[in-house]
Design a protein around this nucleic acid. Sequence first.
DNA 1: AAAGGGATTGCCT
DNA 2: GGCAATCCCTTTT
Length: 213
Amino acid sequence: MSARPDRTPLPRDFYDRPVLAVAPDLLGRTLVRRTPDGPIELRITEVEAYEGEADPGSHAYRGRTARNASMFGPPGHAYVYFIYGMWFSLNVVCGPPGHASGVLVRAGEITVGADLARKRRISARRDAELAKGPARLAAALDIDRSLDGTDLCAGPTAPLSLLAGTPTPADQVSVGPRTGVGGDGAHHPYRYWITHDPTVSPYRAHAPRRRST
DNA sequence: AAAGGGATTGCCT
DNA sequence: GGCAATCCCTTTT
């Protein structure tokens, strides 16, 4: 028999570690989004690590701005950013204060409130597509910039929390290069997912860039 | 299954 | 001004 998911919030010190330790440890954890209509819960199946100011692929690379301020704050908080004119994505801030590292939550399985998620994800054909990809995940859970900076360790009245859930054994975790980042960083073990999980987003190589005229 | 282009706003140089 | 940690639809294999 499998153990029931642990409903205890992950403690602050869970996040106060190097991002490459935190990222794979987030797989299988439970993200809870509390909406006026009811809770939506998601089991995390895919994540990507961003190593702060030293990482060319990170939003923190060019230093602190109003947009990325949450990444420079204390660990265990959300960093939500707006991208491509229409989408939001959720990051979990980790590492000691000032490191500005975080984990992009890329995909997951909706375990509670699929009916609520589906209202915001009309185009999803199957339940596995509800949160397959970072912007889809944010849409399914009704996450936008108003949740930027949310304390993920807070109690059951918080709009967004991260519970211990069920950690994923190392032999069920796959590792690969990040999407969209070339050069040296491409070889680092930055992207983690639960092997063979149907909710993991398909790998896409870096899109070839078109020349401007 | 894979690949390409359009959508659409905010941010940084 | 140009691009961005993307998605979705269409076209092609």
